[in-house]
Amino acid sequence: MRLSPDEIIFWQHGFLKLNATILFTWGLMLVLAVASKLITHRLSIGLKRSRWQNLLEIIVTAIEKQIEEVGLSQPRKYLGFLGTLFLFVGAASLCTVIPGYESPTGSLSTTAALALCVFVAVPLFGIWERGMGGYLTSYMKPTFIMLPFNIISELSRTLALAVRLFGNMMSGAMIIGILLTITPFLFPIVMTLLGLLTGMVQAYIFFILATVYIAAGTRVRKSTAEPKVNIEA
């Protein structure tokens, strides 16, 4: 039983290796970049525009709006990072309908990498927004006693982020794999549809959690009232 696409290794040279996760990620990157390039190749700034452009505009503006709703007043600063998180995870989930495809998000390495990125991005954005001192003192709020707990929370939430996505994506693939052996025809299709849904939900959760973390890290804490978002899978 294979738990992760990391296990499919095409080429290896000592530490360096080329497994399915990396390969499919490249594939996704290629598809996303080429599609974006093709669609944005001829953008219309007039009132008439192509369907594809319209679709992209809807997606981009929706992401922007979501970031703003969470509490980041300048969503365009964070759009590149957060938007790409959502698009990558979403695209990775959507592509599960393709036979033979192994979702890169089904690999704990990928989700851990994404979580690490968020883990690095939060303090970076925080320092960028509030300055080094301002950000660091936020760990000692409300009192310095809270410092270790804040650090633990920072680490644990990164771990949770990585495992949540991996667990969900991997479980989806696992369930389909198991069901295929029991009821070959009908159930896997239904489960694939369900997998698509959970994949999109996971993409959204991952994206929104990252946004919330960044919002919490960048917000100047004038009051003790913190945005309390509890989203669990």
Binding site: D6, I22, M29, L43, S44, I45, T84, S107, S109, A113
Partner: peptide
Amino acid sequence: FTILAQAINFMLLVWLMKRFLYKPILHA
């Protein structure tokens, strides 16, 4: 290694998306 590669891949994707998707779309 995969974590490192994926992190780099993701950073690359962020740059690609910014270059080919967000910028032109937002500009438009």
